[in-house]
Nucleic acid binder design. Structure first.
Lengths: 229, 229
DNA sequence: TGAACAAGGTGTGATTTGCACACGAAGTTT
DNA sequence: AAACTTCGTGTGCAAATCACACCTTGTTCA
């Protein structure tokens, strides 16, 4: 069955820069291309928009179909639509940043049944299309947002020690923080609660676990108090 | 001539939130709809993406065609693609923020040959489609960007008194600043130069004129000095 | 022509915020 | 029990931010 229009239309796709914080590094899932343009290069997961789904729905569906990953926090980056971005024909792609929590450790060292693999963001392979630029923009967005919104927590398990939170921020922002100042600043925001447990299996003194309290955050916003790192 | 594809495709459009700073207010250009969906409501200028133009080219072209406005600084907001945003059929629209400088006072009190009109952003009429949300997002983007990048100057003439710059920031950010602190902060950034002239036609003591120096700004960025209001 | 008016332009001290910094406590290993 | 590793905590100094008032300049109008 064909679909016909009075004027030509570009294809609309979504792409996802899906990030995961693991072993002290930010990692990104990519898919190796098997076919013609950019054959063997690596590309962001993504695909065509269906007529009955929203952009967010589309990017989540494609991510699951291509990598098995579900349960991702997604946020739009922007649309990419230069004329020649795909040699096969005109496409406009809406890119999303996806953050997942390492609990569900779906596909870690590379589900080798699939052609999806995780790469450290500082060790990326050759990329297809304009995906290198998309990834740059995604990381820039992450850096900006993480300073003014509590999206860092999307990359951590529900319960986490402050050490991990600090390491995550250090990785994302590529700078180091003084431990005492970092802890004070984060705790003074008043959006973390001590869950009254400590980590298990630690080789040394066990750290207390905290969780992010979304209700306290909302209240904080209502009171016009800023989340500023 | 018809255009046929194997799978259905949404139409791709661009929309522009074109702002102008005039008489102490931010104003936005809108077009009154003459036809069916949202008849008589007001809509953002915009239209269909041609196959041989980039998104930015498209939004500038549509803005010129519908309002006569040229020479606009544009920056992408994001793509809007909910399934039911246009009752006539599936469309994905990429929205842009457009900032223009009041020198070229093209179409001020409403070029009445056209159906385009300027509205104060705090006095908007009934809006078509999801354009109310788009405008909200545009203003939020403007507020964010204006704090960390020198885009405010896009809304002023080349030469301007510091008073006008302060008023602009106060309007955009919806807060007032102490005159002395504001002037110190802006001048200490080192990106403004005194052009050695004063305003004409002022009813009282004439203010000195300044201009934004893009070269100094670039150098400032290179030296990793931040532009922070 | 000078008095009244309106807006322009300038500096200081008080408060707050940010930053650097070190050590005892807890738990594990040998 | 000694050695090791990581956890968790408070203070003082420097820098940045904020609040604040008056004289200057130019115009208008009596």
């Amino acid at each position: 069955m064909k679909h016909t229009y009075d004027y030509p239309r570009p294809a609309v796709t979504t792409d996802c820069v899906a990030l995961r914080f693991s072993a002290g590094h930010l990692k990104l899932v990519l898919i190796q291309r098997a076919h013609k343009p950019f054959k063997n290069a690596w590309a962001l997961p993504g695909g065509f928009l269906d007529m009955d789904e929203d952009l967010k729905t589309c990017v989540c569906r494609e991510l699951e179909e291509e990598t098995g990953i579900t349960n991702v926090f997604v946020e739009q980056i922007k649309a990419y639509g230069t004329v020649d971005r795909d040699p096969r024909g005109r496409t406009v792609s809406v890119a999303f940043l996806g953050l997942m929590n390492p609990d569900d450790s779906q596909l870690d060292a590379g589900d080798d049944a699939s052609d999806a693999q995780w790469f450290r963001i500082d060790q990326l392979p050759k990329l297809a299309f304009d995906h290198g630029q998309v990834i740059k923009d995604a990381l820039a967005l992450l850096r900006t947002k993480v300073r003014s919104e509590p999206i860092g927590f999307e990359l951590l398990p529900k319960k986490f020690p402050l050490r991990d939170l600090q390491r995550l921020y250090e990785i994302i922002l590529d700078q180091s923080f003084d431990k005492r100042n970092f802890r004070r600043r984060i705790l003074d925001l008043g959006v973390l609660v001590d869950v009254g447990q400590v980590e298990k299996n630690s080789k040394h003194r066990a750290a207390k676990l905290y969780r992010f309290d979304r209700k306290k955050y909302k209240q904080m916003k209502k009171n016009e108090v800023a989340f500023k790192l």
